[in-house]
């Protein structure tokens, strides 16, 4: 296959993004900047994993924070009680959350469309309520605290370094984003991705060309669950505290805003939405906390979400590509 401009295009934005993110701390290492960057990494991973299900196979799961929460609680146990290392915790969490996703998927994919959304939302609420009530297991509303911080031991080092500074966390976290991007691209730009699209657009038609919709839904769900489970595991070790509210519905709302305002089912859309809406809150807080309360920020988000749904169904990404196309058109005509 010849490598054309066309086939390279999907890689441009993620590579530019990663280069910027890798270099930024060299110029500015303030706590604010690092905090924002870590936030961007976290939300991008979360949004990409969410989009595998919501954007690509079209099943809007409102229960994805379950994998995050259980992955985090699992890590608190594995790292705190069993002394498992950080990478081990992430892998075990990813594995079990993929397994959970498969089992849950077998049940939940019996229902579809809006019923699926309602069912997964119900599951999310049950999980959060259980986490709140099962105080012996989770600490309830008082949270599980004291999750050990990661220790990094590389071959040339004499003793392990305890990862505790934000900059260390950030550079250890960044490869996980790269991995997520690679998985996302590898899946969606391949035949599997084509089958995902087929399943999303028309399940009946998909079965008529030999695709078993459930199989692909499970693949997407398990991948998403694994990535989010690993993310929860990582986050538990970064903030050292896990609360039932880490699975709250506003997490899902943020994901919906990022993915659907940015542009669902498209990498550039998720990147645009994820970056904008993970940078915006800290900036609004820093700049405008004097002028407006968090409620106004949320109202703004709500308005943006509704506005995009009403006037830009393709999201910001669709708008951007329309503008780009127009510029190209003008340039061509000019020459």
């Amino acid at each position: 296959m010849n490598i054309s401009k066309q086939s390279l295009r999907p890689f441009i934005l993620p590579i530019v993004l990663l280069v910027i993110m890798a270099l930024l701390p060299l110029f500015n290492q303030s706590g604010f900047t690092l905090n924002v960057l870590i936030n961007v990494v976290r939300w991008l991973i979360f949004a990409l994993a969410f989009d595998l299900v919501a954007g690509h196979i079209g099943s809007v799961s409102l229960g994805q924070p379950i994998f995050y929460g259980i992955g985090a609680y699992l890590t608190a146990y594995l790292a705190g009680k069993l002394g498992l290392g950080w990478l081990g915790c992430m892998l075990v969490s990813a594995f079990f959350m993929a397994l959970l996703a498969l089992l849950a998927g077998l049940a939940f994919f019996r229902i579809r469309h809006v019923t699926f959304a309602i069912g997964t939302l119900g599951a999310a609420i049950v999980t959060q309520l259980v986490a709140n009530s099962a105080e012996k297991l989770t600490g309830g509303a008082l949270c599980t605290t004291g999750v050990p911080r990661p220790q990094l031991l590389l071959p040339f080092m004499e003793s392990a370094i305890k990862i505790s500074k934000p900059i260390q966390f950030y550079y250890l976290f960044l490869p996980f984003l790269i991995l997520t991007l690679v998985v996302y691209l590898a899946v969606t730009k391949s035949r599997i991705g084509r089958a995902f699209t087929a399943v999303r657009e028309d399940e009946v038609r998909a079965s008529a060309v030999g695709i078993y919709p459930l199989r692909y839904k499970l693949v997407a769900f398990a991948l998403s669950g694994a990535l989010i489970g690993a993310l929860g595991s990582w986050q538990a070790q970064y903030v050292t505290v896990i609360c039932p509210s880490d699975m709250a519905q506003d997490i899902t709302t943020s994901l919906l805003i990022m993915v659907f305002v940015g542009g669902a089912g498209r990498l550039s859309g998720v990147i645009i939405g994820g970056v904008i809406f993970s940078i915006l809150p800290p900036f609004l807080q820093a700049v405008g906390s004097k002028y407006f309360q968090p409620a106004y920020q949320q109202i703004l988000y709500g308005l943006i979400l509704v506005g995009v749904m009403l006037y830009m169904p393709d999201g910001l990404d669709g708008l951007a590509s329309r503008i780009l196309r127009r510029f190209r058109g003008i340039r061509k005509e000019g020459v």
Binding site: V114, A117, A295, I299, G302
Partner: peptide, 22 residues
């Protein structure tokens, strides 16, 4: 589509809840 319905009304819900909060 139902997806647009769901997300639009979720957006509405955010607006109403936070307007009440404010």
């Amino acid at each position: 589509s139902w997806r647009t319905h769901a997300i639009t009304t979720i957006g509405l819900s955010i607006i109403l809840q936070n307007a009440a909060l404010a």
